[in-house]
Nucleic acid binder design. Sequence first.
DNA 1: ATGATATTGAGGTGCGCACCTCAATGCAAG
DNA 2: CTTGCATTGAGGTGCGCACCTCAATATCAT
Lengths: 345, 345
Amino acid sequence: MRPTAKDLAEAAGVSLATVDRVLNDRPNVSKKAFRKVNDAIERIGFVRNPAAVALARNKTYRFRFVLPLSGDQYLSELIGCVTEARNALRADSTEVEAVQIPMADPHHVAKYLSLIDHETVDGVAVMAPESPQVRDALVRLVERGVRVVQFLSGQERLESADYVGIDNVAAGATAGKIAGRFIGNRAGKIMVVAETMMALDSIERRLGFDGIINAQFPQLQCLPSLETYADEKRAELIIHRTLQHNPDTLAVYVLSSEARAPLTAVWNAQGSRQLTVIAHERTPFSERALMEERIDALIAQDPGHAVRSALRILRARADHREPLASQERIRIEILLKENLQLQSG
Amino acid sequence: MRPTAKDLAEAAGVSLATVDRVLNDRPNVSKKAFRKVNDAIERIGFVRNPAAVALARNKTYRFRFVLPLSGDQYLSELIGCVTEARNALRADSTEVEAVQIPMADPHHVAKYLSLIDHETVDGVAVMAPESPQVRDALVRLVERGVRVVQFLSGQERLESADYVGIDNVAAGATAGKIAGRFIGNRAGKIMVVAETMMALDSIERRLGFDGIINAQFPQLQCLPSLETYADEKRAELIIHRTLQHNPDTLAVYVLSSEARAPLTAVWNAQGSRQLTVIAHERTPFSERALMEERIDALIAQDPGHAVRSALRILRARADHREPLASQERIRIEILLKENLQLQSG
DNA sequence: ATGATATTGAGGTGCGCACCTCAATGCAAG
DNA sequence: CTTGCATTGAGGTGCGCACCTCAATATCAT
């Protein structure tokens, strides 16, 4: 039989009360007792029964995803994943919610975060653009006893918070390698489009992309990043113009998770030209375009995995446990038409 | 507050005993009572507290991985993942073990499986080559009340068992697409190497590979599959000969998870020739070769994910729950040097 | 030695459920 | 009506632990 706390007390030569004090970091424990209990734990291989702990604590965990307010398809996917996780975790006394707030003004975001405390919520996963105000607000959030996960967002990594998401430099490099090898040995230009180059993740992806292209594909030249500012008209205009001025464009790389506007513009303007198209993230739009071979490859991070990973980490932190690193690394996926694996089949 | 079984009994207008009978499929429940309880469950949104259930049942789950006896690096990785999962699940009253048995003789495998019953183990994940004997043994295992997962192996899919692993036809197609696009528009041949073409997964991968090459890259021609029979000398010989006879070979595709012998032979024989190399599975060997740019791409399925997935499914089945499909789909990963994401960094 | 404080033990309660027993009720066939 | 059986309810116990109280003892400085 598996040893219980009672066995542990016996083995350690102390009372159940002392075992309880040691196991739950309660005060008034002598160093000697502490050692006796920990030695006994090693000796008899005691492991707390999580079910019994959960039942006795009878605590409900409350976690919140703080996401940008946007009509982005990737964001919709993400919200869908949160909803799914919410339903799956309802059984485990875990309340999960997603809120969307405008991210344009860092002060507003910081203000929002400053109103959260551990009375309201045990942990938050925050997806917000880099800014000193937000970073500060996150640090203070941690200080107030709320677990924080930096979630899929181009922020400077905090010491005191966990990060869930991919390495964007590596993601850009991956895109670069795929683009370079897919293009073959023709010489020409690559058009790079982003919503904005103010975002850290765009900057990092571009950095990784350029690094690979410059080092390994000297016959290719990356054009300056085009910024759509999430404006369809503007996207249409600048992309059309760029394609006209650069007839030797061989490929398009869309940095941002929303590829719809840029790619629609590209397809309207490309004429009979063959373009290798690389974009980020799997959405209904990009999935369909991949199936129709209008996109050649997607660089993606699985939103479902990201959500579950964030929740597992928050849960582990709330229980003062170390998250299992090997399970929580989000992969940089390369999606082709062939390995898309649609749900239906 | 979250409703408990007591609340449910009250809401249904029955006693706790009847609620218990309905919830645990016990006999002697009238249709009327059954309906009353289920209606009340819907109405008040009752969800069983899994922690309380686990505690009250006080049951330990015993799952076993049945794997081939082989020095294969991928298998070592797999065993490592099982060990990791074993330690992680020890806390949850779940015993996980891995046994390795010789798979050469289907009768022997079937014999081994026939000795397993639900007294010994609650579920098994079996990785064994396709054969009618094994298939039969698995079906009978299920009939004896043992949950079965067909694990990462090229077996005909059973109705009565779950499957964990990738679609090998799609994996082959993915390899084909990567090979074709990486080669560019040069014309030439592709060498295909397998340990044996008797294995269903090799056949399926080859099928997917040829399908893509023939349909999308007519300038490329796939050579007949070379079979190494896991014999280094033989591999060396046939690969050397094939490369000599086919000076216009542009790429090598290794179908099996053990790429070491074939690729070593290729590197010994390739001379100054540039070859695009595609292989399967991430192992210390293939990882290193990818970093050194001796392999261009790996098609992989994450063994850690596969192990965890198999265990989650076995656990769900043992609890008469439906596994969460969306989480259990094993992805066909494309690994390049750029998205390898080594553990160290 | 004395008081103050730190440490320990004994014991109880409850978390939500599974599983068991036994008596009580219902219902049908004879 | 009685016998037999199916159904239901009341009640208890225990799973392993967290959390609490109170009294008893140990340890320290003075």
